[in-house]
């Protein structure tokens, strides 16, 4: 996987759009999910996700391989884009646009999607009550299953700081759930 990742990045750096498309397709769900939990709704998450990949496409010729998967770099861009989004003070859009956005869903799919969404919204509401660092740690470490090293690289923090934050974030989340 790591070798494939490196090869795709190498080709994308040389301007191979198919290689970048492969990086995009592999990483889109996780980057979208990360942004979804940090923003108001699906439409906003989609808008920011698209910005992340466009920024990555423009920046990839200058990408510097530090021995991590390219997803760590994409999370870093996503985190900055979310910060920009909140700085620009865009107002929250109404929460439910599921059906408008997804006309292809059948009724069974819709029920399942809504169930997932309800549970996801519970987590999202809990996360909103936590400091940003805690949110990032929980999403990257427990939802995206990144290693401590990858989390540290994505957030620009030391390994020790990530371990401490992880402990505190889980403790805080547990307190909210109880």
């Amino acid at each position: 996987m790591e070798d494939l990742d490196k090869e795709l990045v190498r080709r994308a750096r040389l301007g191979d759009k198919d290689a970048f498309a492969a990086i995009y397709e592999h990483n889109l769900p996780r980057i979208y999910r990360f942004i979804y939990f940090k923003t108001a709704n699906r439409a906003t998450a989609e808008e920011i996700t698209q910005e992340v990949f466009l920024a990555a496409l423009r920046a990839i010729p200058r990408y510097h391989d530090e021995g991590f998967l390219v997803s760590s770099w994409l999370y870093e861009i996503a985190r900055n884009k979310v910060i920009d989004f909140y700085r620009s003070k865009k107002s929250d859009i109404s929460i439910d646009e599921e059906l408008e956005e997804r006309p292809e869903l059948t009724s069974t799919d819709f029920v399942k999607t809504m169930e997932t969404k309800i549970e996801a919204d519970k987590l999202k509401n809990l996360l909103k009550k936590l400091p940003e660092d805690y949110q990032n740690i929980i999403l990257l470490r427990f939802v995206e299953d990144l290693s401590n090293e990858e989390v540290a690289h994505s957030l620009g923090k030391s390994l020790g700081a990530v371990r401490v934050l992880q402990h505190r974030a889980l403790k805080a989340l547990r307190k909210l759930v109880e």
Partner: peptide
């Protein structure tokens, strides 16, 4: 909650729209 969160996915429509947008983007190459 974590398990349910992992099920959140972007729609197919968004995936293909963004892919098309990326192919349109001119490169510095």
């Amino acid at each position: 909650l974590f398990d349910k969160a992992k099920e959140i996915k972007p729609s197919e429509g968004f995936l293909s729209r963004t892919r098309a947008r990326l192919y349109e983007e001119p490169l510095d190459h």
